[in-house]
């Protein structure tokens, strides 16, 4: 058996243990609770910033008799099933992409419009953020030459984005995609 450690060695081990353990405990505390941004301190915030670039969207077709029909967007865009569509079609990262895909659906469905009928496709969308789903947005007719609703939505999203960067005192009303599964109209 080796000799028992000397007093100096015991003190050294205890000192090292306490310093390293304190660093392990206090580092994340300073980053996560104390507002520190030091790269020398590690935070443990796995997945806190992951998957913020995803929107939940539902496109609907509106006809003159107030009928609202949900659109299977991947099929409307010419893909046999959801799994056949590329990721860029399946996953929409922001309201710009929601608008762009809506307009593509408009051009694809043009041929299905009867004479005298106006093609009216709208989107209900909500996008991810660290604080959950952002407020649901409902568009006007995306097939119109220019949708002013998107201008407003974009401004709203930018304002929300700024508010997230510089947190506002209170969050906006909660409204997930499940809060408006069927609506598409801009009320």
């Amino acid at each position: 058996m080796e000799d028992p450690p000397s007093k100096a060695r015991i003190a050294l081990r205890l000192g090292a243990f306490l310093v390293v353990a304190a660093f392990m405990f206090m580092g994340p505390a300073a980053r996560q609770l104390g507002g520190s941004h030091s790269k020398y301190l590690r935070n443990w915030v796995m997945f806190s910033g992951f998957a913020r670039e995803i929107c939940a969207v539902e496109y609907t077709r509106h006809s003159g008799d107030d009928a609202v029909t949900p659109i299977n967007r991947t099929q409307a865009l010419g893909y046999e099933t959801y799994l056949h569509a590329p990721k860029t079609v399946r996953r929409l990262a922001g309201i710009d992409e929601v608008e762009r895909q809506g307009r593509k659906i408009c051009s694809k469905l043009k041929s299905t419009v009867a004479d005298g009928e106006v093609l009216d496709i709208r989107a209900a969308a909500t996008c991810a953020s660290r604080k959950g789903w952002k407020d649901t947005v409902n568009t006007e007719n995306l097939c119109a030459t220019r949708s002013t609703s998107f201008e407003r939505l974009r401004e709203k999203a930018e304002a929300e984005s700024k508010a997230e960067t510089n947190p506002a005192p209170k969050a906006g009303p909660k409204a997930g995609p499940k809060a408006d599964p069927k609506t598409g109209a801009d009320k």
Binding site: F47, F50, A51, R52, E53, I54, C55, A56, V57, E58, R73, Y82, A85, K87, V89, R90, R91, L92, V98, A128, R130, G132, W133, G176
Partner: peptide, 14 residues
């Protein structure tokens, strides 16, 4: 947030 993870990785925007 868990819905975001699953939609971003698997379900897409539907």
């Amino acid at each position: 947030r868990f819905e975001h993870y699953l939609m971003a990785l698997y379900f897409g925007s539907d």
